[in-house]
Nucleic acid binder design. Structure first.
Lengths: 336, 336
DNA sequence: GAACCCGAGTGGAACGTTCCACCACCGGAC
DNA sequence: GTCCGGTGGTGGAACGTTCCACTCGGGTTC
């Protein structure tokens, strides 16, 4: 299984290794004759350049690393789509290290990519500590996606969670709801902002005494469980805003199991506008984030830094506007 | 941004680079005193070993590469979960190159990992040509997941698609269906086998004259479109077996839009048992593959090869049994 | 015909590690 | 005092590239 090196190719073609290197990199300064000889030799041997050796000497790898906090959440798939596309267009390759909503595994993933000496790093929905992220950002350009930050050491791209959540409250109030509760996601990225937007919205409409939340999370199971808790309340809310779509679908599951009609008995709203949420059978009212656009913007920011095109050294924190998508999971509050 | 090297650490700690190397790798043959000095120096400088240089000299990277044919399909997320877990347990790290159901991008992904000199490769649901896969398998141990093959150059793990599809037909026939159609996925991995299982099943029940399929695919959009085609048939089937759950959910979407009741007017079956399929509101009858088990098995096969534990050099082709999961999308055929 | 330039090609240093052969020192046995 | 073995530590080669300084001919210019 020993793979052929540039020297094997050189020997076979009867030239120096330097010339092979030139040919492989497509240099102009090579005679047609020799070029053909080298290419033939390479093809016969099945030579493939060793990116490891190349990275070592060039001190760059041409690779953008992505740390993904949760591979199970479809939200990230769209994001990666945009990132990969942008990376290729910028002449980079994208490589991904998965974590599974576990800070420990996320740390290892980060470490793996750092040790591989990727040229730049994108962290999506990171759950590790800011300190750890900043330490990484000191060695390699970094863009944080879908996690609010003001750190001066990196760029970031996110949607305006506060505004998005506020819009949800506006919508529900407009329909006539007052008992509007919230299932929040604790300290997960963006969760504080969404909660903030909810509470601000409630106050704006004079409903501060109706503010009520319960801790859920960003997963299906957490949404399901939190809704179970709410259903046991004395005054069951007429509308619930859930931290994200994945959890909202878990909440719908709990409602279906309990025989609560949506939106007849209770309205439900999510966040993220996942592909599934648009199905007839789910029809979840939610807040759309322009996911693949965010991916593209993130990678553009990164490449701008990598290629040294940024005049000032200032960090950029992009905030894209969210958009309410009204579907069939919200309606008028029940009569009683 | 120049990162500290082993030499910087050595200088600071007043020892040789060899000693630093020993300490970093946790050797026993180092005095406590020096070890502490080295670790202090490393911490102060924020030293992180350069995996690129290490891979070059060790001629191994400690990394298992995964080529993922479709990041959007949740089926793969579960698989990766198992792979990552197994990799870590075996002392490897997992890195992933995403493609998006596009053979060209899948090729680049494969090339990226190959150039990075990963120690082993897992390809999940690969759509590139067998020739290309075999060429890669010649340079690095490879396991193919969810794509049937008998190649002697690699291992593989898959479920028994023929049996799984056969079980679907049995179930539908048992309910009383005769006009059972199939939405197939053309040449996509496993699609031929599922179609085979469907046709064999139909013949087994004496329904060979009812065999009817239309080309769809493994995506939501393709399932939706194919179902549209079927609804325009003169004799609309009473049951449809769709190539996978993602497409089946697309098919349900088409049925909902057309006002066709499921399972009242038509029964629908998928394949893969995605998490979404289990929701009350979808309740899709489907065929379960033990996904994360497949991921674990795949990585175990790979590591067995990497660590040279395999006595014979023979390839292993594991076939795991699928399991029918009956839910609410199948029922008795309509009366008329 | 000397001086010069240019295009094509070469050899060796460098990248940051690991690994191997080797060395210095010390205590104990004779 | 010599020899021996073990412990702790060192320097240099090697990994497969890229890059730089250099050489070698042949044509152009004066």
């Amino acid at each position: 299984m020993r793979q052929p090196t540039i020297i094997d190719v050189a020997r076979r073609a009867g030239v120096s290794k330097s010339l092979v290197s030139l040919v492989m990199r497509g240099s102009e300064r090579v005679s047609e004759e020799r070029r053909a000889a080298v290419l033939d030799a390479a093809a016969e041997l099945g030579y493939r350049p060793n990116a490891v050796a190349r990275s070592l000497v060039e001190r760059r790898s041409g690779v953008i690393g992505i740390v993904l906090s949760d591979l199970h959440n479809p939200f990230f798939a769209d994001l990666i789509d945009g990132v990969e596309e942008g990376a290729v267009r910028g002449g980079y390759r994208a490589v991904l290290a998965p974590a599974f909503l576990d800070a420990g595994r996320e740390s290892t993933a980060l470490d793996t990519l750092l040790q591989m000496r990727v040229d730049g790093l994108i962290m999506a929905g990171a759950t590790v500590s800011l300190a750890e992220i900043e330490q990484a950002a000191k060695r390699v350009p970094m863009v944080l996606v879908a996690r609010p930050t003001r750190s001066a050491l990196m760029d970031s791209v996110r949607n305006d969670d506060v505004a998005g959540a506020g819009g949800v409250v506006d919508h529900l109030v407009e329909l006539g709801h007052e008992r509007i509760a919230h299932i929040h996601a604790g300290t997960a990225p963006g969760a504080r902002e969404r909660r903030q937007g909810y509470e601000d919205g409630m106050r704006r409409h004079g409903l501060h005494d109706q503010i009520a939340s319960v801790r859920g999370g960003y997963t299906h199971a957490e949404g399901l469980e939190a809704m179970g808790t709410m259903l046991a309340w004395q005054a069951v809310p007429t509308a619930v805003f859930v931290a994200n779509d994945t959890a909202a679908i878990g909440a719908l599951e709990a409602l279906d199991a309990a025989g609560v009609l949506v939106p007849g008995d209770m309205s439900v709203v999510g966040y993220d506008n996942l592909p599934i949420s648009g199905l007839h059978r789910i029809a979840l009212t939610t807040v759309d984030q322009p996911t693949d656009q965010m991916g593209r913007e993130a990678v553009e920011l990164l490449i701008e830094r990598l290629d040294g095109e940024r005049r000032d050294g200032r960090p950029r924190h992009l905030v894209v506007p969210p958009r309410l998508v009204v579907r069939n999971s919200t309606g008028l509050p029940p009569k009683s």
